[in-house]
Simulated scan of single mutants.
Amino acid sequence: MDTTQQPAALPTDELRELYRLVTAVRQLDLAAIAWQRQGIIPGYAPELGQEAAQVGSAFAMDPQRDFIFPTYREMGVALTLGVDMTAYMSTHKASWHGGLYDPVKTRLAPIQAVVGGSVLHAVGWAHGQTLSGGDTRGVALTYFGDGASSQGDVHEAMNFAGVLKAPVIFFVQNNGWAISLPTEAQVAGGTVAARAAGYGMRAITVDGNDAAAVVLATREAAAHARAGHGPVLIEAMTYRRGPHSTSDDPGRYRSLEEERRDAGTDPVQLLADRLLAEGIADSDFLDTALADAKANAERVREGVEALGVRPGREMFDFVYAEPTEALKAQARAWREESEHV
């Protein structure tokens, strides 16, 4: 059944923490775009407008037992989980594929560049939780966009999860665009949530700009999956306020006027307005959160710029558990040509 999650009360301390997090994500995201323009990193996938969806969903999970499977755009998820952001940004620096952080310790799988690829991994991990039994069952949370929902891998994963009742949450960030293609031109039926019924799973539609609503929706989905009732699909309705990536020019397929008209309420401003209106925070709190966020972004920049080049031999070391003869031959040839050994 497709339901719409309405905003409700969260504890004051959680709302304040959500604001600190979405502000930190916003400033780091803006900084990363600037770094790419300055040549500090070669590429980056911005998430302007999706901060609440990412922070709210990750905030709702239990890092002691759950596991999260990101795409290449979940910087906000990583920050919320407490991942070292220099280690995370190492992928965008092109010094390491998947991030230098420890996935087991952080409960965040390596960054996945294959569209829809992380969804398959999440279902496999979730089914493993079912097979292991016990009362400490973890829940997998996996992300993809409205564009990725058209990938065959996503449909196979959802079907598998539905049949096996795997404890997994499929979190769709519907930002209105599959690169240059609007959602209505590539999602039959109009919503991704409508597809859940075909796989026998519950669906929740939530305002992806409302961080508190996303927390509640994700907690509800996690409780459902953890209780053994099967997977849940959450469709967070938001808007991509900038380019698909730093190599994209959104002006080729939409106007700035259209972007301003369709983007809706800025998620960071929405939460700030709520905190002020309910007396949960004052302007000093907001100013401090912003200053801390900017300082954090600067620390990450310093760390990213200090990242060294990884040893070239690693491209051979981590291909197979037992290297093939062909791979050994390639490694020898590379060492002779590059290291002269």
Rank of each mutant, 00 (worst) to 15 (best):
A291Y: 06
A291K: 07
A291H: 08
A291M: 00
D292N: 10
D292K: 02
D292Q: 13
D292T: 08
D292E: 15
D292M: 02
A293V: 03
A293N: 08
K294Q: 07
K294F: 02
K294T: 04
A295K: 11
A295C: 03
A295N: 06
A295W: 02
A295T: 14
N296T: 09
N296I: 01
N296L: 13
N296E: 10
N296P: 01
A297Y: 01
A297D: 03
A297G: 04
E298V: 11
E298R: 10
E298H: 09
E298A: 15
R299V: 07
R299K: 15
R299F: 13
R299I: 09
V300M: 07
V300W: 07
V300G: 04
V300I: 13
R301S: 13
R301T: 14
E302Q: 14
E302S: 06
E302Y: 02
E302H: 08
E302P: 00
E302I: 07
G303C: 01
G303F: 09
V304A: 06
V304P: 13
V304Q: 06
V304K: 04
E305T: 10
E305S: 10
A306N: 12
A306E: 13
A306D: 11
L307K: 07
L307P: 14
L307N: 09
G308W: 15
G308T: 13
G308S: 14
G308K: 12
G308L: 08
G308N: 07
V309A: 14
V309S: 14
V309W: 14
V309Q: 15
V309F: 14
V309N: 08
R310F: 08
R310W: 07
R310P: 05
R310I: 00
R310V: 10
P311L: 01
P311D: 02
P311T: 02
P311H: 00
P311N: 01
G312V: 08
G312S: 12
G312Y: 13
G312I: 02
G312W: 10
R313C: 00
R313F: 06
R313I: 09
R313E: 05
R313S: 03
R313W: 09
E314Q: 11
E314G: 06
E314F: 07
E314A: 03
E314L: 10
M315S: 09
M315D: 12
M315K: 14
M315T: 12
M315A: 11
F316I: 03
F316C: 02
F316R: 01
F316V: 01
D317Q: 10
F318S: 03
F318W: 13
F318D: 00
F318H: 12
F318C: 03
F318M: 01
V319A: 11
V319D: 12
V319F: 11
Y320W: 10
Y320N: 04
Y320F: 15
